[in-house]
Design a protein around this nucleic acid. Structure first.
Length: 105
DNA sequence: CTTATGACCCTGA
DNA sequence: GTCAGGGCCATAA
């Protein structure tokens, strides 16, 4: 029996729920914690399929460069940035200091 | 089967 | 610090 992708999906959602308010993490980190180190892209894929009314804090996920993985002109970028700033996370030149507010289990 | 795409990551220049 | 190249894996055509 092949590895269940449902497990990966659930693991990602569970990990997202563990991220404390005011902290952020990266796609690769989530994939790693879920047990699939090389599935960073799939994390984003899962998030892209989440409904807009979800209670999952998807906005606490950014890329390894400390940047939001959306073009600055896009609507999603501003939504995520607004949510993060609302939690007290500060942006410096469009970037987040992962050293400071990067979540570590 | 091969290509193309995607909310990515690591390394080297 | 930024940028480009290669790698990674699942899905769609």
């Amino acid at each position: 029996m092949a590895i269940s992708q449902q497990e990966f999906h659930d693991a990602v959602l569970f990990i997202l729920g563990q991220i404390p308010k005011g902290k952020v993490t990266t796609y690769g980190k989530i994939a790693q914690l879920a047990g699939y180190p090389n599935h960073s892209r799939h994390v984003g894929k899962i998030l892209s399929k989440l409904p807009s009314d979800t209670s999952i804090p998807w906005h606490r996920v950014i890329n390894g460069q400390g940047r939001i993985s959306f073009p600055e002109h896009s609507e999603r970028y501003h939504v995520q940035k607004d949510k993060l700033e609302h939690e007290g996370i500060s942006f410096l030149n469009g970037r987040i200091n992962l050293k400071q507010i990067g979540w570590q289990p």
